[in-house]
Amino acid sequence: MSQVPNAYLGVWKRRLIQRRSGHSDSETAVYWLQTPRLFADLRIPNHPLPGLALEKLSDAQHLALSEQQGFAGVTQVDTDICQWHRNMDYQPVNGDEDIGRMHFETSDCLIETALDDSYYEIWDRLPRSVGVCRGQWLQAVDDPTRQACLLLAGDYFLFAASRPEPLPPGPDLRTLLSHSESREKTLSLLACELSFGQHSAGEAPWKIECSTLPANIGQVLLPASVDPNAPDLFASEAVLSSLGTFMPPGGWCCAPDP
């Protein structure tokens, strides 16, 4: 699979989605970080929750978390058709293709339209996301089936990591939670992390601004001592042994792109 065109690189924030049904949404916080091959996408509904660990949130708050979306994988572009192959997903896999027709209104404004015209989305590129753009797919040292990725674009980062336990089949995460037989099981269903924020080119700690885990917001993914532009960033044992809230016991190691 070839690299995506340079025009797509950076962080895109969704301004609006308009559906054929008449429903529109400009409130959900949606960020799409695109590197030359890898991408990650984070979508957090506008219902602020307290910045607490999962085990300290109520059942109702857990259900609110189940409305979040996030996914990561490889992007494929063919002329004006863009397809996002999800190799990691916050929600259960439903078999639907994530594919749209793309049109650049300007270099920093992108219109995505469904192939069946059922929706269109307006995306704006964040100015400070232009610059060094790269990413690395990861896997757990002690469990190669558990995957993660760290993506960088300009001053921004997005870290995504799958759950320690695979998500069982189901129509959506809310349904799985409603059928959970224990609180422990509920917590495991929600233990998928996508955290987005800024590192300010290494001049400040890597501060998380938006995350599927409310307790992470305002926290630090990596310290300021970690240079995001370092050539050996993805080979750093200090980085790979400290990434994420639910880090595998043996840490992460680099893996080929999926």
Rank of each mutant, 00 (worst) to 15 (best):
S225R: 14
A238R: 11
V239G: 03
H199L: 05
F196A: 05
P223D: 06
G244K: 01
D232T: 13
L213K: 08
F234V: 01
L240P: 05
S195M: 04
A230M: 02
D232Q: 14
A224K: 15
S241G: 10
T245G: 00
E237F: 10
A215C: 11
P205C: 10
S241R: 12
L213A: 00
S225I: 10
A224H: 10
T245H: 10
D232W: 09
A230K: 06
I217P: 05
A224D: 11
P223F: 02
E237M: 04
A215D: 11
L222M: 12
G250M: 11
C210V: 14
N229A: 15
S242I: 05
P223H: 08
G202I: 00
L233G: 08
G250E: 12
A204C: 03
A224F: 01
S211W: 03
P228T: 08
L222Q: 00
S241W: 06
S200A: 14
E203Y: 03
D232F: 07
T245S: 13
S211Q: 09
G197P: 00
N216H: 11
E209R: 08
L221Y: 08
N229Q: 15
V239C: 03
E203P: 06
A201N: 14
E209F: 03
T245N: 07
I217W: 01
F196D: 06
Q219N: 12
D227P: 02
V220H: 01
P223W: 01
D227F: 04
G251Y: 05
L233F: 08
A235G: 14
G250H: 03
L221S: 09
A224P: 07
Q198P: 06
V220F: 06
N229G: 12
G251K: 09
I208P: 02
P249Q: 09
S236L: 09
H199Q: 07
F246S: 04
P248S: 11
F234M: 10
P205F: 09
A238Y: 00
A204Q: 13
Q198E: 15
G202K: 06
S200K: 13
F246N: 03
G197V: 07
G218S: 09
E209N: 08
N216P: 04
S211T: 05
I217Q: 12
Q198L: 11
P223I: 04
A230E: 13
S211E: 08
A215F: 01
A235Y: 13
P214Y: 02
E203Q: 15
S225D: 13
G244P: 04
I208G: 00
W206T: 07
P223A: 06
N229M: 09
A215K: 13
K207Y: 06
T212E: 05
T245Q: 15
T245E: 14
A235I: 07
G218Q: 03
G218V: 05
P231M: 08
N216T: 02
D227C: 09
S242E: 01
K207V: 13
N229S: 13
Q219K: 13
